[in-house]
Amino acid sequence: MSPPDLEQPVLWSLLGGGFVAAFLHAALPTHWLPFVLVGRAQRWSLPRSLLAVTAAGLAHIASTALVGSLIVAAGLALDGIVAGLLPYLSAVLLFGFGAFYLVRSAIRRPAMAGGPALDLAEPAVGHATAFWGLVAVMALSPGEVLLPIYMSSAQEGVGALALLTLAFAVGTILGMATFTTLARAGASVLKLERWARYEGAILGLALIAIGLLIVTHQH
């Protein structure tokens, strides 16, 4: 398998778009607020909380990569039957996710439901239980919004998919760590949640832009 061509501007655009999408997705309160609450209840230091963030973020991306690899394998098999279908299918999915986030950001405020459980923040919970509980919850919730980007890069080869996974990991951990640190430093959680409403709109536009990039690259 040949290494990815790092001189291709489309590859760099996908990597940059993947990093941005992962960072913005990690800015949702369900990706950092549990670490703030658990860290406060367990009286963790900031480095210990960030260690949990890093481990959980890696687990989150590992499960995303696993699901993404299965989707890519199925997509490539389908692409062998219907030549050229895979890029357009991934673009349609990106458009769909982008529209979903745009609509959701316009009609509702960020909700705490649907993400990692917050009841881990009981003071009686052991440190190891709290730590691995956060990691397990993130591992069991792969980033569905990142999966179409895997599909769009499937034909670039394994090397490109590995680079994309790295971009996802860096963006996710950086986003989770940034907002966890801000909240622990005294930033208003309510203000951060209000910012997350605009995150939905920005993420939607970013996903649609990546979809347009894929479609344009096919012509």
Rank of each mutant, 00 (worst) to 15 (best):
G39D: 06
A185D: 13
A167C: 01
L86A: 15
I149Q: 03
M138F: 14
A74E: 09
L94I: 01
L76D: 03
P9Y: 07
V170H: 04
I173P: 07
V215T: 12
M112P: 05
L166T: 03
K191G: 15
L207N: 11
A160Y: 08
G39R: 10
L207T: 04
A209L: 15
R184C: 11
A196D: 10
S153G: 11
G204Q: 00
E193H: 08
A209T: 04
I173C: 10
P34H: 08
G200H: 13
I208A: 14
A167H: 01
P110G: 01
L102D: 03
A128E: 07
F35G: 09
H219K: 06
L146T: 01
P47C: 06
A185T: 14
M151T: 02
P4H: 10
M1Q: 05
G17N: 11
R40T: 00
G157P: 09
W44C: 04
A27K: 04
G211M: 13
L86Q: 07
G16L: 01
T172D: 07
G114R: 05
L86M: 13
P110E: 05
L11N: 11
L24Y: 00
I107E: 12
G175T: 07
G133C: 03
L102M: 14
R197W: 07
G175K: 12
L50Y: 04
G186N: 12
G200E: 05
W132H: 13
A124W: 03
P34A: 06
A160N: 11
L146D: 03
A201E: 01
I208K: 08
L102G: 06
Y198L: 14
E199L: 15
T178P: 14
V189D: 05
D5G: 11
V72N: 07
R43F: 07
E144Q: 11
P116I: 12
I202F: 15
S13H: 06
A77Q: 08
H60S: 10
M138I: 02
W195K: 02
Q8H: 05
T129W: 03
A160I: 00
L205M: 13
A139T: 00
P142N: 03
V103R: 15
Y88P: 02
S188A: 13
V82S: 05
P116L: 15
L66T: 02
G186T: 06
A55W: 11
L6K: 07
F35S: 10
E156G: 12
H31A: 14
A162P: 09
P3G: 15
T181D: 09
W132D: 10
V103I: 13
R184A: 09
W32R: 06
V72Q: 04
L33D: 06
P4C: 13
P142E: 00
